[in-house]
Design a protein around this nucleic acid. Sequence first.
DNA 1: AAGGGAGTGTAAAGCTTTTGTAAATAGAGG
DNA 2: CCTCTATTTACAAAAGCTTTACACTCCCTT
Lengths: 231, 231
Amino acid sequence: MSNKQLLLIDDDTELTELLSQYLTPQGYDLDIVHDGEAGIAHATSGKHYDLILLDVMLPKLDGFEVLKKLRMSHLTPILMLTAKGDDLDKILGLEMGADDYLAKPFNHRELSARIKALVRRMSLLPATSAQQNLRLDDVELSPASQQVLCGGQLVELTGTEYSILHLLMLNHGNLVSKEEISEKVLGRKLAPFDRSIDMHVSNLRKKLAVFNPTEKIKTHRGAGYLYLVEV
Amino acid sequence: MSNKQLLLIDDDTELTELLSQYLTPQGYDLDIVHDGEAGIAHATSGKHYDLILLDVMLPKLDGFEVLKKLRMSHLTPILMLTAKGDDLDKILGLEMGADDYLAKPFNHRELSARIKALVRRMSLLPATSAQQNLRLDDVELSPASQQVLCGGQLVELTGTEYSILHLLMLNHGNLVSKEEISEKVLGRKLAPFDRSIDMHVSNLRKKLAVFNPTEKIKTHRGAGYLYLVEV
DNA sequence: AAGGGAGTGTAAAGCTTTTGTAAATAGAGG
DNA sequence: CCTCTATTTACAAAAGCTTTACACTCCCTT
């Protein structure tokens, strides 16, 4: 299982065939689908992908739509491919959350190098922990299903609550500022009188307290929040 | 959150000037150097950079050399720029550890989008809790969680108390004036009859004494405070 | 050695800022 | 239109910072 798992979403079967032949010998396991809906289905199926190669021109759901939907829940690196050499496409793609962009027709070795660079970058850092289940005391969070169990009981969280809990748990024992939560979870800068984070944390505490009244999220006034760990 | 710190290494002053004008308003702080050696010097100076923009054609030490040297010790994302649109160049750069590669002349918006993508990707990773814990005798201070343990027990400090203790511990054995405390911790000049610092120090002593009655903060009348260390 | 001013310790009060949370509102997706 | 979430609003409560007040201490002066 040391092979890197890639998901290729492209309707050009000639190209996918070629890439498969090219990338497989280099130590990649390639899943190939030919339309946007299938792409989403695979990417969210629970299987872990190290990288997603995403074509822009796709049947059913175009690449940008796929990107947007995936980014709502997944942080998997995405490299976009497009037939158009159009700059606007690039910029849109990158600003919407893609990690890299390559215009067709591309040099296979460049694609390979870019894949390698992205995978290397991601694996150098504890980013993989973002995909792993997290368990702290009686709270268990599973990124694959986006579910949280507290003492074995399912806790019904909204997407945002889940993301905040995930961020806090990833950084357990470390202070996480509201600025950071806002930028990483809500994707925007924290505005002066924005109380959203407070509300989400409040709701999160309320939901967790149903199963275990022990306070897990500590407030550091003026600084942020901290997920407590047993010492 | 504060501005992202970029290091631009390029000998083309016209271009660096242009990029500076283009990127600064977008919320980046740009340090610019014009040769490879200075680039290495800056990158390894201890200052944290979120991203390094590196030209290939450089005086003294070319971009690939800089890349190779930097990668021996640093994982800072590197985006390479080059005048040649040569695919081989790109591949080489990426394989040597660059994270992205852009050929000149490039569209500024594409550069901006690629910078944003890299910075975004990096900042999604767990916060760098690089700051080191400080431990003096039985007092242990952890910058990551902004918590203080005394004899293994958590001491509940306010933000200001924590900051003052941090400052004193950093300068343990050295006198720290009230002026300095006021400016570094409270962010203002010490006013004539301001007793705030005295109060904070008083509270700090009181809280630390709960766990260990040994006096740790000594007053130097008319001069400041001093964190005592065992000899 | 006594007196007194300046600096310090600290309790308590006052004030400001931040946070918790219920409730209203806005918005997305059916 | 209904439902589920996210955000905004509003207000109370809490926490923290500063000010005030007064006792005490150091040290210089006489």
